[in-house]
Amino acid sequence: MINIYDYFSLNRILLLAIGLWPYQKSKFAQFYSICCFSILITCIIFQFSTFVTSKCTVDLVLKILSPTSVFTGAAIMYNSFYINNETVKSLMEQLHHVYGNLRNNNEIAIVERYGNYAKRYTAVLTMVIIFATSFVIGVQLYNRFNFRNVILSTKEPQPRHLILRIEYFVNEEKYFYLLQLHINAAICIITITLVSTGAMFIAYCQLVCGLFQIASYRIEQAIQIYTVRGIILLNENMIYKRIVCAVDIHRKAIMFSEHLLSRFEKTFLLLIICGVVSLSLNIYCIFQSMSWKYAKDLVFSLILACSTILYMFLANLIGQQIIDHNNHVFMTAYKIQWYLTPIRIQKMILFLLQRGNKVYGLNLGGLFMASMECFATLVNASISYFTVIYSVE
Rank of each mutant, 00 (worst) to 15 (best):
residue 47 Q to D: 11
residue 172 E to N: 13
residue 48 F to I: 10
residue 156 E to P: 01
residue 135 F to H: 09
residue 229 R to W: 03
residue 136 V to S: 08
residue 296 K to C: 07
residue 143 N to V: 05
residue 185 A to F: 08
residue 67 P to C: 10
residue 191 T to L: 12
residue 161 H to W: 03
residue 42 T to N: 07
residue 2 I to W: 02
residue 143 N to Q: 06
residue 356 G to Y: 03
residue 192 I to Y: 01
residue 358 K to I: 15
residue 11 N to E: 07
residue 307 S to R: 01
residue 392 V to C: 10
residue 378 L to A: 13
residue 127 M to Y: 15
residue 24 Q to D: 13
residue 106 N to Q: 10
residue 293 K to Q: 15
residue 379 V to K: 05
residue 153 S to V: 02
residue 138 G to R: 06
residue 177 Y to T: 14
residue 257 S to R: 02
residue 92 M to H: 06
residue 333 A to C: 09
residue 122 T to H: 10
residue 151 I to Y: 12
residue 20 L to S: 00
residue 308 T to E: 09
residue 161 H to S: 09
residue 85 N to V: 00
residue 331 M to V: 13
residue 147 F to E: 04
residue 143 N to W: 12
residue 70 V to G: 10
residue 155 K to S: 10
residue 303 I to A: 12
residue 368 F to E: 04
residue 229 R to E: 14
residue 287 F to P: 05
residue 369 M to D: 01
residue 385 Y to V: 15
residue 55 K to Q: 10
residue 238 M to V: 12
residue 67 P to M: 06
residue 351 F to I: 13
residue 306 C to V: 14
residue 275 G to R: 02
residue 47 Q to A: 09
residue 189 I to H: 00
residue 186 A to C: 11
residue 90 S to L: 07
residue 134 S to C: 15
residue 156 E to V: 11
residue 328 H to Y: 14
residue 114 Y to I: 04
residue 231 I to H: 06
residue 130 I to G: 12
residue 229 R to P: 03
residue 367 L to S: 09
residue 30 Q to E: 11
residue 242 R to P: 00
residue 201 F to N: 12
residue 255 M to C: 04
residue 320 Q to D: 04
residue 88 V to L: 12
residue 240 Y to F: 03
residue 347 K to G: 11
residue 270 L to N: 07
residue 2 I to H: 05
residue 352 L to T: 13
residue 61 V to G: 05
residue 214 I to F: 04
residue 108 I to R: 07
residue 25 K to L: 03
residue 29 A to E: 11
residue 320 Q to P: 00
